[in-house]
């Protein structure tokens, strides 16, 4: 299982002058957060490419954004609400046709409680 130390991410990442670099433990930790298995053989390459990406996006740190409201919607629209009423019909059987493993209408997973 993926169990990188949580402290791996606590180091301050970056100063704008210094290239950002993610190490293998950081990648393992992020992969754990993302519930994503990354093969041991791929960890180094993943770390290298992620470092490239994070280093690239780090140029944003120089942009002067004091007092700028972060964008929430490209057209400044607000979230539309609808009445809390049932509009969909029960399609459980049809939906579960795509499920990898079901029994009696229930989704089956590996045992969670011993």
């Amino acid at each position: 299982m993926l169990d990188a130390p949580r402290s791996a991410l606590l180091n301050p990442i970056t100063t704008p002058e210094k290239p950002v670099s993610l190490d293998k433990d950081q990648v393992r930790h992020i992969a754990m957060l993302a519930r994503l298995h990354v093969a041991d053989d791929d960890i180094q390459e993943t770390a290298d490419k992620l470092s490239r990406i994070v280093d690239f996006v780090d140029q944003l740190s120089k942009a002067p954004t004091d007092g700028v409201t972060p964008m929430a919607h490209p057209l400044n629209a607000s979230q539309r609400l609808r009445a809390d009423s049932v509009t969909e019909t029960d399609e459980r059987d049809r939906v579960q046709e795509n499920a990898p493993l079901v029994r009696d209408g229930l989704y089956l997973v590996p045992r969670v409680i011993e």
């Binding site: 957060l33 993302a34 994503l36 990354v38 992620l50 944003l60 942009a63 700028v68 964008m71």
Partner: peptide
């Protein structure tokens, strides 16, 4: 996978403001 990992990283505790919030400001 790379994009999921990048996204998880920029949203993770301690990095959200530096990356995600900052990017949404530049986007504005």
């Amino acid at each position: 996978k790379r994009r999921i990992l990048t996204g998880t990283y920029v949203l993770s505790a301690g990095y959200y403001d530096a990356y995600y919030l900052k990017a949404q400001q530049v986007r504005a």
